[in-house]
Design a protein around this nucleic acid. Structure first.
Lengths: 126, 126
DNA sequence: GTGTATGCAAATCTTTTGCATCGGC
DNA sequence: GCCGATGCAAAAGATTTGCATACAC
């Protein structure tokens, strides 16, 4: 994987964002200076190399964040406000009871995706 | 919402299936006798009325199951084999520690989606 | 009869792919 | 120079929409 300006820019945008970015977010953040298909391809490579994590917040598309971030924050999940779209991180993750019962079913190499939605404090009030 | 043969058929197919069905699964199960856009529209109505639940197993499309089933089995989650696609239900769900920390962020009316993937016992061996 | 449901076709949106050219090493 | 990266255009797959007709009530 060559070190190109675009790849660095994408990683930079991801690193300075407080929330996971969609392909469109990235395209916009890069002022549409590259083709969107290239962003798809680049993110796909990043996924393969485990540089970014793919997140599904039930919006009809995926978001991406640095896996590095994932390490810093330790493994975590998200909650997204169903009204305003605000996204917050949830730092703790204890699913050991789930994993125990899955092991009983004979499954190995488990991964999981856990995402919450709700109304954030501001949207709860209005 | 009118009671039509198609709506009953869709609910029937969902009720006799041991796993959540995709729009395509339903289209096929109904022998392609109706237009697929109608299935999308019908499922969308069912979602609105909370008759069916939408499930994302990271396959690139959604699956649906009766919410009734959800009640019978109590609230549950799924694990999908990343190799053969087998889907199993996970009956217990204790995310109270998560919900506690989310409440601290000021969120209300929480919902969550938790899905596991792994290798089922057969695919683990081969 | 009125309003909802459906079929059909087309559009939309996200994502993928083919191919020619460009750029990193 | 070679191989990977990119742009561009087109395709693919899931989903939505407009509109005319058919059906439920």
């Amino acid at each position: 994987m060559n070190r190109t300006k675009l790849k660095i820019d994408i990683l930079l945008k991801l690193s300075i964002s407080s929330r996971p970015l969609s392909i469109n977010d990235l395209h916009q953040a890069l002022d549409f200076k590259c083709d969107i298909s290239t962003i798809f391809r680049t993110i796909s490579q990043f996924k393969d190399k485990n540089l970014v994590s793919e997140i599904n917040l039930e919006e009809g598309f995926y978001r991406y964040e640095l896996s590095l971030q994932k390490k810093t924050l330790s493994h975590h999940h998200h909650i997204r406000c169903r009204v305003c779209g605000e996204i917050r991180n949830l730092e703790s993750c204890d699913l050991s009871s789930f994993e125990k019962s899955i092991k009983k079913l004979g499954f190995t190499q488990m991964e999981h995706r856990l995402e919450f939605s709700g109304l954030c404090s501001r949207c709860s009030k209005s």
